[in-house]
Each structure stands twice: as structure tokens, then as C-alpha cells.
Design a binder for these strands. Structure first.
Lengths: 243, 243, 243, 243
DNA sequence: CATGAATGAGGTTTCATTCAT
DNA sequence: AATGAATGAAACCTCATTCAT
């Protein structure tokens, strides 16, 4: 009893990759597309503007989603804050949910790339963890990326595919990287307790805690994130004092 | 106690006390309330029924909020699942937000009480942490309380007064308790690194991680929570192997 | 990539039958439902009002759909014209489409019942057709039912299940009834051409034409529907003049 | 030419003439249009291309309107299916409504011309009707023109000027033609019942019915349109059997 | 007290129409 | 002339909240 064959419901989304992507699309008929400079210039100008708008939407949406969560965010606010009309959002994203998911995915990408960075040779495991701690605090805890992680934690349970993406792309890789350094540390005799190899999450636990703490309690009691991470490292490496 | 800066939608609200209290409210007409025993019996029966209903609402709401988050939970579903009418919820709670906050507060209480439990005399700090780990896994990680904590983390930023309550009642006390045990461990020579005293959160970090992991990634890769916590304790106490 | 498990999408519609149906619903808990007159009275009053509202919605919707067609009808207008709020419509119908379909179905029912009426004994086939013509003009052409038929013709192609319903319940039965009378007429020697038996639609064709004419051209040139139908009958019965 | 009493949504509109005309429009700047042959050639090439585009739009629109009706047809789909951009439609038609109306008018024209075709001399009225039936089935029932008629019936009530056009150009002429043949048949003694002269619509009724039947019920029960029309003719001419 | 029908503000999504390129 | 990105007015539908019974 559900008739009225609406159109094939498009539901195709537009694109997933960020950046000035949707530039050359559906350009097919004119055989001399490249021979006409004015046309090309016009096209690239437009494409540029489109990419800018898309970026504006992404930025605005990120802020709104972070501030209110998925459900409580109104696309009207996103549009207003991005300086576009409501309908424009739908030129770039299939619907609110697609916007949200593509957003988080895209924002995760820069983080993901760093995870596979090869370790510097000749550096102690301890130094590697120190460096990780500094980078994490500088590039995550103290930036909007912390909010992103929090958003992931917050909305993940309601967006399984997003959680899976995060697990596959971020968690698995991150843990593998941690395990490599741990094994290296054990091998070098820096780390005594080899059960750490079974629970590389332990390395991340304090980092996650700083992220959560910031979102919830910073206003009541600010946390020295770097100090906390360093203290943790000192404990792992069995020192009496953190450096 | 009016958080969640939604747009000024609200229409009104009369605050409501938590607990099974508001059974007898608006009792004004009958001047001889105590003189008629049957009336009294009836009244207490009513009060009982009211308390039961309230409890049912709380239970149902907890499940729904956990499953969908604050914004996506519909009071109609809560009512249906509690076996009451929608309107009945408003006899016990001023509005959706009040229901949510009182809920979380109430659910936190049992947890809070345990935090001030005096330590057993003559037990090592290590044993105390071991006990804590076991209790946490048994009574939090493996119960609905983990969901509660997650909900707190999830919705806290949007309900500052709730976050503050949680900070005051749970976090501060919990950290104080941790600090006591840490100090005790340092004093007894069990713990070498005294920076842990500045960051008692480090003790909790792995516990929080298990809670988050469960909500997000358990389906992709289950986590041995107790093993993880024990490994962490072993590291703190500078052992080569976890027991 | 379509997450966020919205609730089971209800999509249950409410009821299909017209009339004061949804009165006693979900009445289960109180064992003495019938023993408490005040409760009963209240309930029936409510139910009555609900049925009235539903009827008002149906009436208003009918008018609007007839006037503008399915797509161009706004539920807001229906609500306003029915004297209810927009949301109220959704208490009775799952969505716009359900409203439309249930509407047409319900409106067809009275027509359907007449189709199986047994023929009067001892009456000539000609007289039967005459009677049918009169009834059709009086009860269809000159009433809102003509608009209904037109609506069916108009929107049927876009609502296959509705067309099927109409075919099964109205067309098949109607044609069967026609065939019976035709066979009777042939048997009695009133009708010479027995190919009519293969195309009982021919009996209906002029009736349909009057309906369509009314909707389209009546303002330019009114049509004497009964005269037309009678002329047709006279031709079928091979007379020089219509009576 | 502004029908369909939608709410006063419209923003503007500049009427457009039908036919392949508006190729050369707004031609103002070049004062020496005729003096430069290459320019002329270019102009006519353009005009040709424009006419082609217009035709493509008309074709595509016809299909879409037939498939979904006026309201549910999206100009974006029309454009895509015509291989032009959305904006191009507005170079040829003032708005969606103008497109629709001009479309139907244009599509009716070929039909209209045939209506005034002089009867072949020395042919019986019966033969004329037979020929009409054959032509109708071949050129209307079995072609897209049937869909056109249906569209006319369907949307006519919402586009009075369209209905009026159809009445004036198609119905009046068609009925006149019918009447001529009927009178001829009566004169020749082929037709006995002269009331047919008052209701020439009766000739068309079965033809209309086949059109409607096809749109609604063909999938449930296909109809032998030609057989039906022939049976009808046989009845009119008072025969026991159709040829 | 309890109910649940009714309300209506508000949110998402669509699409005719415009206009800079 | 042609394009198609952008607009923003509606339209559908949801759901917190109220209130007569």
C-alpha cells in the first residue's frame, strides 16, 4: 500500500573526498573543452567557488556538530554560518547524515596519514613516546581535533559505519603503530613489562582521557595534558621522576 | 539546572525533586487527611503506586537515553516502554531535560557512595587497586553503568550543570580516593614514581578507555577489560609480568 | 553508509475503515472498564470526538484532493479546512498517501455494495438499464462521487494499488453485473447483438463520458447526462426513438 | 494562459509563443544582420540548433508529464532527459506551466487537422465509422496520443484555459464531424435512431473508454480496443454480429 | 492522579526559478 | 545562447508539551 512511484530516490550522495574535487563533472559534449580558454577559466572559477562553498559548509558544520551534536544541529544554522542558503548544502551532500559522516571521515584523514609514519632510526622507544605525546597534545588536544575525537566517541554508537571506519582506519593502525614501538622498547630493554604488548590501548588511554576531560571538566579544573602524558611515560619506563 | 542551550523553545517548567518524593503533591482539599484511616491507606497505596510508576519511567528512560542519546529519544517511547501515558511523565518531571538530568544524577548515586569507602587496613596499595579493578569491571564495565558513564561523556558538554554535578560528586571524590591510595603506596614504597600523585587521573584512564571501547568497538574486537586493567597495575607497580 | 538506526519507522498506518472506528483501542488494563460509567462516558465522548475529527479530516481532504489533485494538495489546507491542527491528521493517517488512498477506498465502498444488488425479477433488461442510468445520474454524476471517479482516473496510474483495488472491487463486479443483465436481455430477445457480452464495458462507456465531460467541459457546454444515457439504451435496444 | 490556481508563488514570467518560433529573439545588437553572409549562416545554424533543442525539450517534457503528471514532474528531469541544462528550458518557455500547456496544444494539432478531413464520397456511414475506429486505435490508442488524451482529462480541470482550448479545437470540431456522419447515416437509412444526432458524444464514448482503460487497467486485463469499437458500431447499425 | 488526543513550532528536504559566467 | 550553481519558499512530517476528561 505504498504507491506513487517517486523518482528512483536518487540517494547518491555527491562525493566523499574533500578539497576542490567536484570541479570537472559532466563536461562531455563540447569536444574542444580545453581549446577555449574563456570557457575553461569560467569553469575553473566556478569550480573554485563551488569548492570554497563546500569548504565553508564543512567548516561551519564541523563547528555546529561539535557544539551541539548530530541531532541538535540544525542545517539552517550550518547554512547561515557558512554563508550559503539551505539548499546549497544539498548540492554537496545527500542529506544531514551524509554531511555528518563525510565530515568526520574527511577530518580524520590527516590524522590517519601520520599513523603510518616510519619511526626515526636510532631513537629510543621512550623518546618516541615522548614525541608522540608532544605531537598529540599540540596537534590534537589543543586543536579542534580533540572535539572531533569526542564527536566520534559521542555519536559513534549511533553511526555504526562511522565507528567501523574509525576502528579500521584509526584504531587498528594506531594500535599497530603503538605495538611496534612497544616491541622495540621491550627488545631494547627499555620496557620490562611485556603484557603491554597485549594491551597497546594502555598507551592511548591517558591521551583519550585528556580529550574527554577537556570536553567535560576543563572549565572546573584545567588539566596539564602534557604533564599527564609524560608522567604516564615515566611510569611505563619505570622511572622515579618524569623528565 | 536548565542546560542544553537549545533555542528558546521551552514553554514552562516546574522543577521537581528527585527520589520517590512527589507522590503527595497538591494535597490541599481534604482537611482531615489523617483522621480517616481508610483514606490514609488509600493515600499510601496511591503514593506507592506513584513511586512505582516513577521508577518505571526512570528505568525506561535510562534504556532509551542510553540507546539513542538525549535528542533522539522520544518521550512517547519512554512512556510506552514504562507502561504509562505520555502525560504521566510530566507528573513526575518538569520536562524532558529534567527527566534526563535527574536520571543521570540518581543513577550515579550508588556509585558515589562507594567512593568514600574507607580502605581496608593492612592491605597493600597494589591489592587495593586490584580490588578496584575487579569491582569496576564487575560493577561498571559489565553493567549498564558503563552506558551511563558513556552517556555522561556524550551529553555532558551540552548539560553543563550535569557535568558540574558529575565533576563535584564523582570525579573530585574519585580522584581524592585515588590520591589517598597512591600516597599510601608511595609511603609503603610500592610506588616509585611520585608524579602519579599529581595525576591521579592516570589510574582511571584505562578504566575510562574500557568503557568507551565497549560502546564503540566491541563488536569489531572485544576487549579483555580486566586483563587490561591488571596489566596497567602491573606497570604502575613496576612488575615484569601482570599477576 | 546509512546509519543512525532511527526507530523502526513505524509506518503502520492507523486504520482503513471509515466511521467511528478507532474508539475502543488499547483499552486493556482496567478490568472493570464497563462498570465505571463515568469512565465509560468519558471514553465514548472522546472516541466520539475523535471519530468526528477523523470524519472532518476525510471530508476536507476529499474536497481538497478533488479540487487540486494529490500532489498539489497541501495537508495544511486540509487541516485548516477540517478545523484541526496539522499534527492531528497524523493521528489518523500514516501520511499523505495513506490519507489519500484510504479516502478513495472508503468513498468507493457505498458504491461497491450496490453493484451486487440482485436484479428485480420480471423486469425487462431494458428497464434494468434505464434504472441503472437513472441511479447513476442521480447518485454519481450529480454528486461528489463523479469527482471521485475522476480522481480515480486521474491519480490511478500513479497509485497502482489503488487502481488495482478499484479494478477488483468496482470494475470487475460492475462488469459482471452488466454481463448478467446483458445475458438476460439476449435471452429474452431484447438484445440482438451478442458481441455486447464480450464488451460489457460498452454499457459503461457513456456513463464514464458524462463524468469526464462534467469535469472538463460543463462550463462551456452542459451535458444532459440522463438524455445521453437514455439515447444510448435506445440504441442498444434498437429503437427509433429514446423513450 | 495562467491557470492552475496555485497559491501566488510565481515570481515573474514572460509569455512565449508556441511553435518552433522563438529561435531568433532578442536579436538587436547586430545592425547589419543581412549584410554579412557568414553571419547569416551562423545565425541560421544557431536558429536551427535552437529549434532542435526546443524540440528535444518538448519531447522529453511530454514523456515526463505523461509518466508523472504535471505537479510531480521535475524540470530537472526534463532537462536531463532532453540533454540540456535546466536554464535552457526557460529560454524557450516562460515557466513550467507554459511548457505544459504549449506542449499539450502542440501535440494536439496533428489530431485536430484530421478532424476536418472531408468524408470520402460514396462511402457508407458505417464504413466511415469503421475507418474512424481503425484510425483511432492505430493512431491514438496504440500511440503516445492516448497518454496525451489521458493527460488532458487528468490535468484539464486544473488548467481551464487548456480545457477550453481542447474543447474549442478538438471537441467541438470532432463532435461536428461526428454529427455530419450521423446525419449522413440517418439520411441514407443506415441509422434508425435519430436521437444520436443530439448526442454525438455517444460515438466517442467507447473510444474514450479504451483510452482510460489502457491507462488504468491494462495490466490487470488487456482490452481489445478495436473489437470493442467495432462491437459498438455494429450495435449502432443494428446488426446481430460485428463484422 | 492518569490519560492520550490535540497542538503547532520546528526541522529536513525538494524544486521552480534566477543569474553570473 | 547556454549553463548549472545557488537560492529560498514551501511542503511534509515529528514530537515535546498541554489539558479536558
Amino acid at each position: 500500500m505504498k504507491d506513487a512511484p517517486r523518482r528512483p530516490t536518487k540517494r547518491s550522495a555527491t562525493s566523499v573526498t574533500p578539497g576542490p574535487a567536484p570541479a570537472a563533472r559532466g563536461r562531455a559534449k563540447p569536444a574542444d573543452a580545453t581549446s577555449d580558454p574563456s570557457r575553461n577559466a569560467a569553469a575553473s572559477t566556478r569550480a573554485l567557488r563551488a569548492a570554497e562553498r563546500r569548504a565553508a559548509i564543512v567548516d561551519a558544520a564541523l563547528d555546529e556538530f561539535i557544539a551541539r551534536g548530530f541531532a541538535a544541529t540544525r542545517l539552517e544554522d550550518v547554512a547561515k554560518s557558512a554563508g550559503v542558503a539551505k539548499g546549497t548544502i544539498y548540492l554537496h551532500f545527500a542529506d544531514k547524515e551524509a554531511l555528518f559522516q563525510e565530515l568526520l571521515r574527511a577530518a580524520m584523514l590527516p590524522l590517519i596519514e601520520k599513523l603510518d609514519a616510519p619511526p626515526l632510526p636510532g631513537v629510543s622507544a621512550r623518546a618516541m613516546f615522548e614525541m608522540f605525546a608532544e605531537v598529540f597534545v599540540r596537534e590534537v588536544t589543543q586543536t579542534k581535533r580533540a572535539d572531533l575525537l569526542r564527536l566520534m566517541i559521542t555519536e559513534g554508537p549511533r553511526f555504526p559505519s562511522l565507528a567501523e571506519f574509525h576502528y579500521r582506519e584509526v584504531v587498528v593502525r594506531g594500535l599497530a603503530a603503538m605495538r611496534r614501538v612497544i616491541a622495540y622498547g621491550i627488545e631494547r630493554g627499555e620496557i620490562r613489562n611485556d603484557t603491554l604488548l597485549q594491551f597497546p590501548q594502555l598507551i592511548m588511554a591517558p591521551a583519550m582521557l585528556t580529550v574527554i576531560w577537556q570536553g567535560l571538566f576543563n572549565r572546573y579544573s584545567p588539566l596539564d595534558s602534557l604533564g599527564l602524558l609524560r608522567s604516564h611515560i615515566a611510569i611505563i619506563f619505570n622511572e622515579g621522576k618524569a623528565t
